[in-house]
Write a protein that binds this DNA or RNA. Structure first.
Lengths: 129, 129
DNA sequence: CTGGATCCATGTTGATACTG
DNA sequence: CAGTATCAACATGGATCCAG
């Protein structure tokens, strides 16, 4: 990870470099909704509109693209039940669960350093204003 | 973290809700350069242009704002030595080091699931193209 | 119910030039 | 050396309407 900037070395794959993958994963969980979606999914499989209600004021367009991105990285599975009306279930994969555990570590970190962060942000405002 | 959408409850602080802080931290480490900057800083304090060379094709404008953001969250310290020419040293704080450790966990996750991720991405391309 | 398509507001990143 | 200022390009997220 210490050398993410050297770019792609080989043209046969888009991301052979694990560093790039690390960055893309960080970017994924760092986006606005992925983490909370995964957190809801961690409690069990959910259907589309169920998730939509659960993760708040997310729009369906964004929920769709978030889910697609998660699915595209193998973090989430999408199962279509050919019923009327259609029913689609999303669930975390093993890798998704493992990544979710790491996200929980960030939550724990935040819990531990909440005071530090707030102090730093207050100091920032202090010196700025 | 399961209820990040309920918004701010009190007006006296911008982020009393730990969930919001978790999201902001995820957003910070999920941005394009913060993680690699922290990774370089993990090896020891660095000066501005030193970092600039180290983290590759980052522009100084972006390096500056990245560092400012990190400093604003108390993850990094900025020490100015009033010499000629000016010398500024950046270093990880305790919280920064702890967060960096978590980032390393993501790197470990990537190492463990690299095959899964690539398979998922290939399948994605496969069905898309 | 699930989700595609379009249009739009905004934030983030990057290139470049200039300053103490 | 270590930034700041400005402008342009691009990505992200959101609102709304439409369809299987």
């Amino acid at each position: 990870m210490a050398d993410a900037r050297k770019g792609a070395a080989s043209p046969t794959a888009e991301e052979l470099d694990p560093c790039d993958v690390v960055r893309s994963i960080l970017g994924r969980v760092g986006d606005k909704w992925s983490a909370v979606v995964m957190d809801e999914l961690a409690a069990g499989p959910r259907r589309f509109n169920e998730l939509r209600r659960l993760v708040s004021p997310i729009t369906q367009r964004v929920l769709t693209s978030t889910l697609r991105a998660l699915e595209g990285d193998g973090l989430v599975t999408r199962t279509v039940h050919p019923t009327i009306p259609p029913q689609v279930e999303y669930a975390l994969t093993d890798s998704g669960r493992a990544l979710h555990a790491i996200i929980k570590n960030v939550a724990a970190w935040t819990d531990a350093y909440l005071g530090t962060v707030h102090a730093a942000r207050s100091a920032r405002k202090d010196s700025a204003g």
